[in-house]
Design a protein around this nucleic acid. Structure first.
Lengths: 211, 211
DNA sequence: TTGCGATGTATCGGGCCGATACATCGGGAC
DNA sequence: GTCCCGATGTATCGGCCCGATACATCGCAA
């Protein structure tokens, strides 16, 4: 899962570990806590071994600090890596629908085709609906076997499930009806747009809030 | 963390692994997915080695099925185990405030003294507030650097945080003002009450919805 | 009688985490 | 000037926990 996240971020720009981690933390808000270095560096090693990323010498131009030897290692994605990333994006296993996996996939939705987006949203919805049904079951059947605190925990969980299902319904219905992201209008929304995709193989284009 | 959960369940009654897992799944709804056997059995082994639980022969009376040899192993908590459980209940480390840890602690709140309950609720609130502030920061500062999907994910996360903080506020205020669990009235609430605490060392007593 | 789903115990490889160690850099205190 | 501290940066280690897998028994229905 982290594999997908790293590949996705490196597709935007080459980065070193520390930067990668911060980017990970801001983009994968909730649904995925900040990654640990004890995970990050071994994963980078693994990805390098698999040939999906490579180290780019940091000595040269753009990156100013860490002048001396043993400076930071900048990673960039390879052609095979981009291929692998595209595969991972469309393939959806069971781990795609848990909190972490869904969060990562959702983060890259602007680089995912609409069919896949729908498949993932619906898979996630099913997952949460199952959890919700389980909780309802418990609250209906075993309520008198549980103490008040446990009960309240279940209720809170049920609330969260129902809320997420509604959120997903809204997203799904938006996906079906043309406008891609297009959620309810908010005051702080800017029409400012961000970085060019620097020669993406598959630019899915609908990337804006309003056409 | 799982250690605490197992000890707590075995304090209620002796159980075998399978039963333990189902009980775990129903009581720790959300905030902690169903535990895997690949976790459960090694943990049971560890706890047995530590002297906190022991195997009770299942051959005899109460438990009917699995007549032949190589039948289920029933675990029961030891005196040292009860002591350790009491310790774990009051000690609150950082892991007490993440989703899993908080869920487990909350589940045993009816066996926790009020001071500890308050400490844990406030610790959890602080944790969620920090996450919330982080998200607000991102939405205020980096909004134009993020695409619409990522943004929507952050908003949803922020919503969930705010909601949980409100929930915690309510719980905290309830704790402070006498009535212990006592949440907002609901239609399906029964006044039926459950199992006797079978000689608890510290019966905290206020266990009902309404006095 | 056959076979399937629930019950039940157990191991293995691997992902991910927290703690820890170590080194460099920029800037403020003194 | 220099000294120290916090941010930046790379890396490893032990350990928790997960999913996949294997295997065995029980009750029941086709």
């Amino acid at each position: 899962m982290l594999e997908l996240a790293i590949l996705g971020l490196l597709q935007e720009a080459p980065m070193h570990g520390y930067e990668l981690r911060k980017e990970l933390a801001t983009k994968l808000g909730t649904l995925r806590a900040a990654i640990s270095y004890g995970t990050l560096y071994p994963t980078l090693k693994r990805l390098k071994l698999a040939g999906w990323i490579s180290e780019a010498e940091a000595n040269s131009d753009i990156i100013p600090p860490m002048t001396s030897k043993r400076g930071r290692v900048v990673y960039k994605i390879t052609a095979e890596g981009k291929e692998h990333f595209a595969d991972l994006l469309t393939q959806a296993g069971p781990e795609t629908y848990d909190d972490a996996g869904f969060g990562v996939h959702f983060t890259f939705f602007s680089r995912t085709d609409r069919a896949t987006r729908l498949r993932i949203l619906e898979g996630r919805r099913r997952r949460i609906e199952e959890r919700r049904e389980g909780l309802r079951e418990i609250l209906a059947r075993a309520a008198d076997r549980l103490d008040a605190y446990t009960l309240e925990l279940q209720r809170h969980g049920l609330d969260a499930c129902e809320r997420e299902v509604r959120w997903l319904e809204e997203l799904i219905s938006n996906e079906r009806s043309g406008r891609t992201p297009a959620f309810r209008q908010r005051a702080e929304s800017q029409r400012a747009e961000n970085q060019r995709p620097e020669s993406n193989p598959e630019p899915p284009r609908p990337h804006l809030d309003r056409p």
